[in-house]
Amino acid sequence: MMFDTRHIVCASGEEVVKVYDKTDGKHWDCGAGVATSVEDRMAGAKTSIVEKVRLRDGYLVEGRRSGEVGVWTC
């Protein structure tokens, strides 16, 4: 988990990073797991679980269990 001036982000043992917007109170998901629907998951599509996340100036980096590192904006 980490926060900057705008967001709180946390890796909660899921395939996505939970993003909480401090200014408008909204929360949303970010990461490779967002696009996969339930059907995809049933079919066996798998993205890896996010282990660590860092955020700086709206630039988000997440490290996954598979060893991949994803870079996102938020």
């Binding site: 860092r54 870079v71 904006t73």
Partner: peptide
């Protein structure tokens, strides 16, 4: 990155072959 939509993907690095235990970066 400030002009991209929130949540848009920039890149993915196949960094390691095993679970990542820690990471940090200095600036965007």
């Amino acid at each position: 990155h400030e002009h991209l939509d929130p949540g848009s993907h920039i890149k993915t690095l196949p960094a390691h072959n095993d679970t990542i235990t820690a990471l940090d970066f200095d600036q965007p």
